[in-house]
């Protein structure tokens, strides 16, 4: 109690002494520890990427960044929490791509449109993988098998709107008669484990999660969902088999740090500088290489453009697959 009162008194005194102009406040920023909210639970990809970059951000800002996980509802809970806080730059949201789909899935009115991207940290590249004893060597074999045996091949998935679901939607859009049975799991980890155990036949997974299992020969890679080969992976890019994929790519999950849009410009500038520097720090880049994600380090307009393009691609794929609750056209999402 006394501690709080003293702190309150000190801050009153400080207010009285300092000029109240916003510029002056921004100069002091950050005057106290920042609070980082992670949209996903401990041990997930967003958690790992955030905790890898946070110590570097602390260094650049000269202030502590206290991280808390607020998972639930594919990130809705964390996003809403940060949105309910003051736009003073002290509350930072660490999230993945999901909020860009809240609109079409009818989960929330909010999205990253209500935030400013301080930095997009990294993105993942999906890889098409199959159980190790599957009778396919590449994407062409898989497509031939699936189209001749509709619905009988089991695909590991992570639910509507998840990475395997979207890659499947791309395949279904490009290959007539591409019909599989999607078995959804609680995340890409459990789904890959089921693939390793042979309980599903193939799936799409982010390279970082699948890499070590491919390297050990416990599952096999059929194709990279990219326009070029992935370093360290022999499998051909999907565009060699299906050139139509070019219009979707690059596509994959991404991770970023955000503040509320209404945050004062000088504070945003300060945060943005620190976050972009941290994202381009060699230590973070080394982590990215290790974690199997592509470092991005873009912010502002470039980041917004990237996310809008991502949303156009994904929202319309969902709509065409019949999984969108709300028509993307109604939300003003242009089709690419």
């Amino acid at each position: 109690m006394t501690l709080n009162r003293r702190r309150l008194f000190v801050s009153f005194a400080a207010c009285a002494l300092l000029p109240m102009a916003p510029g002056a406040r921004a100069q002091d920023f950050p005057a106290r520890p920042l609070q980082g909210t992670i949209q996903w639970g401990a041990g997930g990809s967003t958690d790992a990427v955030t905790r890898a970059v946070a110590p570097i951000v602390e260094e650049k800002l000269g202030q502590k960044l206290v991280l808390t996980n607020r998972p639930g509802g594919t990130g809705v809970i964390g996003l809403q929490y940060v949105h309910s806080q003051r736009a003073d730059g002290y509350n930072i949201l660490f999230g993945a791509e999901n909020p860009m789909l809240y609109g079409v899935l009818g989960l929330s009115e909010l999205s990253y449109d209500d935030f400013y991207p301080l930095v997009l940290l990294a993105r993942g590249t999906p890889v098409l993988v199959a159980r190790k004893d599957a009778p396919w060597a590449d994407a062409k074999d898989l497509i031939a098998h699936v189209t001749s045996h509709p619905d009988s091949v089991k695909m590991g998935a992570t639910g509507v709107g998840g990475l395997p679901f979207v890659v499947h939607a791309m395949l279904a859009a490009e290959v007539p008669g591409f019909k599989v049975t999607q078995v959804p799991f609680d995340g890409d980890g459990p789904a890959l484990t089921a693939l390793e155990g042979g309980h599903v036949d193939f799936m799409a997974a982010v390279w970082g999660a699948a890499r070590e299992r491919i390297r050990a020969g416990r599952i096999k890679a059929l194709a990279a969902i990219a326009t070029e080969k992935i370093e360290g992976l022999d499998a051909a890019p999907i565009t060699e088999t299906l050139p139509g994929f070019t219009k979707y790519l690059p596509w994959g999950p991404f991770f970023g740090a955000f503040v509320k849009k209404e945050t004062p410009q000088p504070i945003i500038a300060k945060l943005e500088k620190a976050f972009v520097e941290a994202a381009n720090d060699p230590r973070f880049k080394e982590f990215c290489a290790n974690f199997g994600v592509v470092p991005m380090g873009i912010s502002g307009k470039a980041a917004i453009d990237f996310m809008n393009r991502w949303r156009s691609v994904t929202a319309w794929l969902l709509a065409d697959a019949g999984a969108a609750k709300v028509d993307p056209a109604k939300l003003g999402i242009p089709r690419i």
Binding site: A48, R51, A52, T193, R211, E212, R218, F287
Partner: peptide, 28 residues
């Protein structure tokens, strides 16, 4: 042995290994 977490805590330890520059997986 496989880089697959047996529960929530081992999942976090796997993430920690990544941050410390290791590559948890079947080849660990």
């Amino acid at each position: 042995t496989l880089g697959i977490p047996g529960d929530a805590v081992t999942a976090v330890i796997i993430a920690a290994l990544f941050i410390h520059g290791l590559r948890p997986g079947p080849n660990l």
